[in-house]
Amino acid sequence: MHSTFQRLNNITSLATTYLMVLLSLISIASYLALPPVNMGRIDVKDLIIQHGRLRRYAAKNEELASIRFDLTTDLTTLLTSYNTKQLFLYLTASYETDPSLDVPQVNHEVVLWDRIITRADTRDFRAVGNKMVGKTKGKKGRGKIRVEEGKNVYTWRDPSGSFKNIPSANLTLHYSLMPYVGLISSGIAATAQGPIALPEPLFFLPHKDMSDSEVENESLRDKKKKAGDLTIFHVKVTTSFDKVFKGFADKYGIRDGVYRFLYYSHRLGEKQTPSDFGMRPGHRYGISAEVLQEGG
């Protein structure tokens, strides 16, 4: 005796079973047939370490690293594979404590930059800085990745608050492939040429005439500055001034050419070195930054 209910029950359970078998076959097949990736490359343009605070409650003053990098890779084969919904690209820095030091060993891995590329994207990904370019008029394609002058989007810091026990870091671009159905897979899409040495930190200390709060609370980006305004800061000079300027610009979010830097009313040029002004490496000097344009 077969009632309508039983017939319906049989049909749905049969359909569900077949659908599940089909979906599992698809996920296994697409996982096994994952195309290989041509290794791309990462070029580190600049890496500076400076003191600062995270923008959160009760943040401590700690060493923060900022990086600029160029990145090229081609993930077309992965993106056009039939079971690919999206690729999550992430640039990581992995580093560990100097093994020769008598301090607890810690293995670190942090994400510095990430980007989601979906199957619906019909243009190659191209970005300068953290802005995308050619979103509408770029070359038609899928999966070619090119980033110029990319910056870390996540703050790079160490739980200890300092990078002093860390000699170098390895940079790697990973991908994580999200399928429409099935297993999540991941791999490496680009690497840097070798480990990157971590530099000595730059110091931007408030001048003793300015109170701490004035410097910490009124970052230059929040307050409109008048032309001629001076910000005085102390800097521990290492090799050349361009890193100092870059660090200052990154910290306060200012554009090139809006500021000039002075040491006792002498203009400091990017090409000049501290020894041109009789400064000795490792010592601290008061330098002032003068606003040239309104609203900089």
Binding site: F88, P104, Q105, V106, N107, H108, E109, D114, Y154, P159
Partner: peptide, 20 residues
């Protein structure tokens, strides 16, 4: 959520996560 920071010490692993 996705792991964006991992710090492995002798005793434990410290993790930070973030939603895409």
């Amino acid at each position: 959520h996705r792991v964006i920071e991992s710090h492995i010490t002798n005793t434990t692993q410290l993790l930070l996560t973030k939603g895409d």
